[in-house]
Computed example of a mutant assay.
Amino acid sequence: MMPATIRTVKGFTLVETVMVIAITGIIAAIVAVFIRAPVEGYFDAAARAEITDTADTALRRIGRDLRLVLPNSVRIAGGGNVLEFLSTKTGGRYRVEADAPGDDPLEFDAADTSFDVLGPALTGMTAGDQIVIYNLGIPGADAYEGNTAATHNRRSYNGAAGTVSNIVIAAANPFPLESPGRRFQVVDTPVTYICDGAGNLWRYWGYAIQSAQPSTVAALDGLVGAGNTRALLAQNVTACQFTYEAGITERSGLVAMRLAITGNGESVNLYHQVHVSNVP
């Protein structure tokens, strides 16, 4: 008769299992302590980068617009929360003397409804464009004042759309002042940047030029109407300040912009300055 085979079963005891679990927990806790700070730092940096990019993009957008500003048309309202200016689309020099038959100079001693452009023809002219000459931003030479009276330096374009070398205008009175450089600018629309006090920075455009500066979102919404020509540039804005100093140099003014944004527990505060040409 064969003897019975005795099998030996090997494994972990309960005490060994508990010890392994305890040691693993200790190691995991130690690792967590060391990696927590870098992980939190990464997420904080990502949050700061996101809101910094938002603020920087908004300020650069405003800066690009300011490079097309009509000289001496920047104005501030709302305690520094509202920036408005007239945006130019093109411009040129007007003819002052007839050098050949058929030439059409611009007259300043009587109402004149057309004049020749010296140099290349202007492209993209459309109904509603405004012709401005020698805008100084003072009474009698302020494009915001209107486009019909003898003291107004702005007139409505009244010609065909497209590319033109002769500017047709609606004029019951002559322009009040000549430009020393024989220059004129074509304005298409005012542009307003406004911080609404509810954490939003808006851009408005496409509304009619107003003598009194619109300084609230409600007023601007009423001006753009169903066209709704506005865009949201930034949210979570906690501070917003525009300032303008005319005559920083003889030929330019300075627009300064400060924008603070808070999000995901992080805050950024950016400051940006733009020189604007004030040579009319």
Rank of each mutant, 00 (worst) to 15 (best):
Y42V: 02
V33F: 03
R36D: 15
A28V: 03
F12Q: 14
L68Q: 10
D65H: 12
R60L: 09
E16F: 12
A55K: 12
N81K: 13
F43Y: 11
I26N: 09
S73C: 04
L66A: 06
A55Y: 05
T13S: 13
E50D: 15
Y42C: 10
L59T: 06
T54P: 11
D53Q: 15
T52W: 09
K89L: 04
V31A: 12
D65W: 00
A45V: 09
R75T: 03
V18H: 06
R64S: 02
R48G: 15
R61I: 10
A55G: 15
N72Q: 12
I23Q: 09
E40D: 13
I26A: 15
T24P: 01
V82D: 01
F12R: 06
I62Q: 11
S87E: 12
V82H: 06
R60G: 10
G78E: 01
G79C: 01
R75G: 10
V74S: 10
A55W: 01
F85M: 08
L66N: 10
I76R: 07
R36M: 15
R36A: 14
V69Q: 09
V18N: 12
T57W: 04
G79K: 06
R48L: 13
I62T: 09
F12C: 11
A55P: 09
G79R: 03
R64C: 08
G80L: 07
P71Q: 06
A32M: 08
N72H: 02
F34V: 08
L68P: 01
S87Y: 10
R75C: 01
T57K: 15
R61E: 15
A46P: 14
V39P: 14
A55I: 04
R60W: 11
G63H: 07
E16V: 01
S87G: 11
I35E: 04
L14K: 06
T17H: 08
N72I: 00
L66M: 02
I30M: 14
I51L: 09
N72G: 07
S73W: 02
I21S: 14
L68W: 05
R61H: 13
V15R: 10
V39D: 12
Y42T: 13
R60P: 11
S87L: 13
N72K: 04
L83H: 03
E84M: 11
L14E: 00
T88G: 03
A29I: 00
G78W: 02
L70T: 04
V82E: 00
A32N: 04
I23V: 15
R36V: 08
K89G: 15
D56I: 02
P71S: 09
F12N: 11
T88H: 09
A58I: 01
R48V: 11
A29M: 00
I23G: 14
R64D: 08
D65Y: 13
G41H: 05
T13R: 01
F43H: 05
A29W: 02
F85T: 02
A32Y: 00
V15M: 10
I76L: 01
E16N: 05
F85A: 12
R60V: 09
